[in-house]
Nucleic acid binder design. Structure first.
Lengths: 257, 257
DNA sequence: ACAAAAGTGTTATTCCTACACCCATGC
DNA sequence: GCATGGGTGTAGGAATAACACTTTTGT
């Protein structure tokens, strides 16, 4: 990927916006989440996990030193979705985005100084992949726990929060968990993923039953090896549907049977 | 309002977009809904109502004769929300929009011929107002039943559909009905509004109980006069909260009590 | 034996739909 | 008296939370 390890060379929205335009230019900004263990030294690999978001650190003014969402200007021949996928691949080497959806438009006239830029915010999800090592990231790019974000650039903190709210809501009534879980998982692992995303405990038994009744769980037949102290090996499941789907209708005012 | 009854003089997105730009320009497009009786001659005033959307008929190419959503380019000093409110007021004389929210970005490179225009779609809601006469609309502008739309311009049909889906979903778990109902209403009238929006019967008793339990109904103390055949006069209610609020948490994976 | 996980069972709760029913109030 | 609507009651169903318990299968 071009320019990956040269953080100084990064096309930014300021390079494209020129002051003579009558209206705004358009950029995309993606809050890409994944669930992973905390990096803190004391944390065990199977300890509590946390929801993380991918940010890169700005080297230049404005907002130098602050952390920003990946993204940038939309080119003339692409729509915002493909622009987001392209820029995630080019700028932070992220090609395995399992789910991507718009969250909202951020358009305050002064949201970026010295330029008129309208941002289309996105929610992106990247699955855990415990087998292979984490994909290499550019030097200025890192995953940050959403509950302890560093100082963010411009209005990017609000974009992260909007995407997180969207994710939390949809975890309950859609199959969107497939985009956070690895290809094969034990129910305990899946519970940790749901717990980290929602911010509260999720009962393993009830999680199993809800997803099972909705037809979202397929046994792989394989098992995960038990820990050093023995115990029954955990069964490995996968999501039966790997594409976003609403699994649960809303309760109130449903159509007559 | 300037230019209201001169449909030929309407600033369109094509006037603003010039071919020399590096990226897209931005417009807003609002699908504004209201519930009203059908215009068909046989329909009674208290007969079945239908969900309508506000459209104006294009006079010039491209897509001359087709019906389009109100909206237009975003100016340099406004965000997309205020731009939408401004353009609804200026172009179709709509100042009493009770609810307005973004639905999504439409950005296919060829969605508008001979110009690169990214549209931010909006859902708008206008309450019934049976007391006073319907506000005057420009000559080329009219309400159309959503179930029988005329030929729509560009991708505006998709924007209407996306907004309708958003409205249907939120009617169940938010208080968004306040933005469709008149200031004071009988439960039978409110049921007709919900029925028209959802597309299926809504039981008056259950509607009352759900909204009452959620604390969304306040009796006004006044009553509506009964029909010519007598009967108890219907009590008039109003929505206790006139601002958008989520009234119902999602069912699955709720936080522990 | 012991530990860990799978899977089932059970109870209580909540919220919904559907519909019966009685009461209130005006014509 | 009669029509219309308000409001309550109730039965049934669906889904969930919380947690006990049995079974399975490794060390």
């Amino acid at each position: 990927v071009a320019g990956l390890d040269t953080p100084g060379f990064r096309p930014t929205i300021e390079n494209v916006a020129d002051g003579n335009r009558s209206g705004p230019v358009v950029e995309v900004l993606a809050a890409v989440f994944t669930v992973r263990p905390l990096d803190t030294p004391g944390a065990a690999a199977d300890g509590p996990a946390a929801l993380h978001v991918l940010l890169w650190q700005r080297a230049q003014a404005p907002d130098a030193g602050r952390w920003a969402l990946p993204g940038g200007p939309v080119l003339a021949d692409e729509d915002v979705d493909s622009s987001t996928r392209r820029q995630l691949a080019e700028k932070v080497d992220l090609t395995r985005v399992a789910h991507l959806e718009q969250t909202g438009v951020f358009s305050a006239p002064d949201r970026v100084p010295h330029a008129r830029v309208v941002a289309s915010g996105f929610l992106g999800l990247v699955p855990q992949d415990p087998g292979r090592p984490a994909p290499r990231l550019p030097a200025d790019t890192a995953w940050h726990p959403v509950d302890h974000l560093p100082a963010t650039a411009f209005d990017h903190g609000g974009i992260v929060e909007q995407a997180r709210q969207r994710l939390r809501g949809k975890l309950s009534y859609t199959n969107i968990g497939f985009a956070l879980a690895p290809a094969a998982f034990t129910m305990a692992e899946l519970s940790r993923i749901y717990t980290a995303t929602l911010g509260h405990e999720v009962d393993v038994t009830n999680l199993y039953r809800i997803l099972h009744r909705r037809g979202m769980l397929t046994p792989t037949g394989r098992t995960a090896p038990p820990g050093p102290s023995g115990g029954r090996p955990a069964a490995l499941y996968r999501f039966a549907v790997q594409r976003y789907r609403v699994t649960d209708p809303f309760a109130a005012f449903r159509p007559p049977s």
